[in-house]
Simulated assay, not measured.
Amino acid sequence: MLARGVITTPKASYFSLPILIALTVFMAVSEAPGILRDWTISQNPVKLVSGDIRDGKCSTRKGFFTTCEAHLNYAYNGQTYDKDVEIMFVDIHAGDYDTDLVISGDHPDLATLSLGLDMLWNRIITLAVFVALLGGACIAMIFQILRVWRVRGQLHRAAQLEPVPVEITAFQRRGKRLTVTYADKIAGRKTGRAAHTRFEPGQEPLVVGAKDGKAVALAVWHGNTALPVLLDSRLERIDMTAEERASILAPLMAELGGQPRELVAQGKKGPSIMTRLGRVFLVILLFIAGIFGYWVWYVTSADSQFTSPAMDLNNMMPAPLNRWGCDQLKKRFGDQRAPFGCTASDYTSWK
């Protein structure tokens, strides 16, 4: 049998999980109702020229997360409405947004900004990505915690132990305590699963070698458990007699040179400065090429002249390229409203 508490869950997981769940719920609760409202409006939109948009403002965080809010006041079929609207989307934009007040022809109490309808799919995708990432992180963390709990329960029962080398991926010393993260990806099952353990004061992992600059230590599979258990250098984590420990450690220590290897941080030699600069330059070139290709696709092939953030890219292009791009868009959408970057002084017609 193995000692209790030889596999642990990082304390940060117990603090991070409620925060991630709260963020996921907050994103869904704050954005989903507005998206559902605007989806309903988009089925039968009615633009109100006489409507009043007050206190409208947009703010951008992290360079592309844009939040716009406004107070809407309008009258329809003899009834007056007051609504507060807030929308969030991803956009690379410079300058102001031109927007109108739009209501649902079927449900006149539902009102929004035309900007919200233009960015509807942008908002849907943004919310879906946030919820998927945050929700996925929550599920993965819950699964990891439950797996550790299940393994700890299985370790209380006697089972055959199968030795396996594992890679030490990280470790931290705090006072006399040592915490280690290790992964099963060297031999045997090679599950790739990572586990976390805390050693008692004075204990060290049984390091048997190194691979690719990282320490390799000895662990054991306890029956069919999902995670291996990292052993200490004196095998105190295994329930056995002193004579049994000595008989097992003797040949192992002889092979290791008489004493266990210490767990020390391995320095890694990084690439040269010129190599790093070359990589940065290549990334910049690829980024510029991707942006330019996206812009060319927008002005020549996009299904809508209001595709975002492509219309903002077109607006930021040098005058000759912007003029050419607007000409290409006008050939396909000349009978419709001009997008941002191609509008005349009235912000509606083509320049």
Rank of each mutant, 00 (worst) to 15 (best):
G5D: 00
V6M: 06
V6W: 01
V6N: 06
V6D: 00
V6A: 00
V6C: 05
V6P: 03
I7R: 10
I7Q: 13
I7S: 12
I7H: 09
I7F: 04
T8C: 00
T8S: 09
T8K: 06
T9K: 10
P10Y: 06
P10G: 11
K11W: 03
K11H: 00
K11N: 02
A12V: 00
A12S: 12
A12H: 11
A12L: 07
S13L: 12
S13G: 09
S13T: 09
Y14H: 08
Y14I: 00
Y14T: 03
Y14A: 05
Y14V: 02
F15Q: 00
F15L: 11
F15H: 07
S16R: 06
S16W: 10
S16G: 09
S16F: 09
L17F: 10
P18Q: 04
I19S: 06
L20Q: 12
L20D: 12
L20P: 14
I21W: 04
I21Q: 06
I21T: 14
A22L: 15
A22D: 02
A22I: 05
A22H: 03
L23S: 14
T24C: 15
V25T: 12
V25C: 04
V25P: 02
F26W: 13
F26Q: 04
F26P: 02
M27N: 13
M27E: 14
A28F: 10
A28N: 02
A28I: 04
V29H: 13
V29Y: 14
V29I: 14
V29T: 11
S30E: 11
E31R: 15
E31A: 12
E31K: 11
A32N: 03
P33Y: 05
P33C: 06
G34M: 01
G34H: 00
G34W: 02
L36G: 07
L36R: 08
L36A: 13
R37I: 03
R37E: 04
D38Q: 07
D38L: 03
D38K: 06
D38F: 01
D38A: 06
D38R: 11
W39Q: 10
T40E: 09
T40F: 00
I41E: 03
S42N: 08
Q43H: 10
Q43R: 13
N44F: 10
N44I: 06
N44R: 14
P45T: 02
P45F: 05
P45A: 08
P45L: 06
V46N: 11
V46C: 13
V46R: 14
V46P: 07
K47M: 10
K47F: 08
L48Q: 13
L48N: 09
L48H: 15
V49Q: 10
V49R: 06
V49C: 01
S50K: 15
S50V: 05
S50G: 15
G51H: 07
G51I: 08
D52Y: 12
I53K: 04
R54K: 15
D55L: 08
D55T: 02
D55I: 01
D55Y: 12
